[in-house]
Design a protein around this nucleic acid. Sequence first.
DNA 1: TCTAGTAGCTCCAGTAACTGGAGGTTCAAG
DNA 2: CTTGAACCTCCAGTTACTGGAGCTACTAGA
Lengths: 157, 157
Amino acid sequence: MTQIETLPIGELSRQTGCKVQTIRYYEQIGLMPEPARTTGNQRRYDTRHRERLAFIRHSRELGFALAAIRELLGLADDPDCSCETVDDIARTQLLQVDQRIARLSALRTELVRMLEQCRGGRIADCRVIEVLADHTHASCLSQDHEAPTEAGEGRAG
Amino acid sequence: MTQIETLPIGELSRQTGCKVQTIRYYEQIGLMPEPARTTGNQRRYDTRHRERLAFIRHSRELGFALAAIRELLGLADDPDCSCETVDDIARTQLLQVDQRIARLSALRTELVRMLEQCRGGRIADCRVIEVLADHTHASCLSQDHEAPTEAGEGRAG
DNA sequence: TCTAGTAGCTCCAGTAACTGGAGGTTCAAG
DNA sequence: CTTGAACCTCCAGTTACTGGAGCTACTAGA
């Protein structure tokens, strides 16, 4: 019989650009199903695993949280279901991205202003330190209760 | 003698908008100095503490990592030192903010495109799911090794 | 002075999404 | 049969907090 193609974890890692440890982590948290094992207890993956992992990675790159991806995967398994929820999740993600861009832009403005005002010199005269120390300023850049943690961003090295 | 003004932790928390637990956390990691204590072992803060905490909070709001803030605080303590390093830290922060904005904008573009293509309907026809599953696409939004964790963003609620 | 209620204390665990390492086993090529 | 890369499990660490358990201190009113 023709043998179906199976991949060891390192190969799957190479093909998806997802680290070996991360693949095992996804299995551990139930995002990836347990693959078959060799008699020597090593994982062997098939095409379905590869596709699922690619889906996860691409979603992560788009900033979806693992919880959202879990939900998307569940929905994707039911082809007859309406895709309303899927779109909702994506729209929520877009909204969050917009909020973060807005917030970062505000930060940017303040950073630039701060740097422009500093002529360089002694710390005692440094505008940067001064601005940071100025608490009349504090919390005007409200840190609201949003943004769980970002994909791609966050950890990586 | 005139008694100098001292604040219990809750009052400091109110004045700075920094949670009580967070203040204790900053002390634990050595970012805030240990304050005086009452005979009953409760913390009592003075104006210098309040200013330092305000500095920390404002820096966090601008997205500086705690490690950077630690460094800034060290530099701020030496008024005769040149403010080159301070400016460097701020410029690095600006650079990171710029990178994250760029990255988020790219995410945004893809999310919008994805959502626009979906006409709503069955999952089987859903463009969102399709795009996410498409691994020819994967890692074109490179997640580079940057951005430690963001202030204001990240945790909050 | 007693009491109630709020605020404080310490210690520990959990969050998100991984990453890295120790210490040991398996696989595939030569 | 040997060698070296790849694999295994388990555990701890990362960032910047947050929350809770179980206990103590402080303060205002009766």
